[in-house]
Amino acid sequence: MKHKEQQPEQPTEAPQSYIEVIDFHKSFGEKKVHDGVSFYVRKGECLGLIGGSGTGKSVLLRTLVGLEKPDQGKVMVDGIDIGPMNERQLIDIRKKVAYAFQGGALFDSMTVYENLAYPLREHFQLSEKEISDQILSQLEEFGLDSGTHRLFPGSLSGGMQKRVGLARAMMMHPEVVLYDEPTAGLDPYNTKKIQESILKLKAKGVTSILVTHDMPTVYAVCDKVALLQNGRISEQYTIDKLKQEPSGAMTEFINGESA
């Protein structure tokens, strides 16, 4: 695939962490949502980000793709601080960092095919045959029937919309995927399908951050988990450690004993 635009300059020495958030602050009017959030994710790792409703998990995720700006602090992606970047500068970052929206965020005036073709037509110079081949193989990859591509998003189930949204986010072969509650409101079958898709991508070396309340999914796909509480990451464990030594605020949160 030939890129239309040049990739930004990469640092000569790859940093250990692929995504790093340092002392992140964000307020909405009077309400201070983040008060010095710091964490990192290594290349190929999957971080589960959990926390009560309204703690700013999705805002943090949106900041990682430049949809929100930090008030203070650094948001590093592959060694580059994306905080001060404008929309044009963010294009190259957004080719590397995909965002899987909670509801899929599919373009409802376009068919599934057009939705999946959109990023390819925008960023790559491909023939219609190449686009079609990629779309059909992507649909297969995400367990969707080949006939799905003719449908409009309105005629898909919630689970299918999420999978199509995920498939669209993956069309540019990103290095990072940010999942915003990918299994929320899904039945066990669709939840399993989403988990399988995330694991498949992880096996390919894709770095990911998963915002969710669904602990079975966190246990199934994540390497480590962080708890966002009172505007900060209050605890962070590897999944193995959490399973072996369940204690502290995170366990209380998981067991529903604290918000």
Binding site: R62, A98, F101, A105, L106, D108, Y118, P119, E122, M172
Partner: peptide, 14 residues
């Protein structure tokens, strides 16, 4: 409201 505008931005387009 349905985050389609965010999706356009997140896909690196305007």
């Amino acid at each position: 409201v349905t985050q389609q505008i965010d999706a356009i931005r997140a896909l690196g387009t305007s």
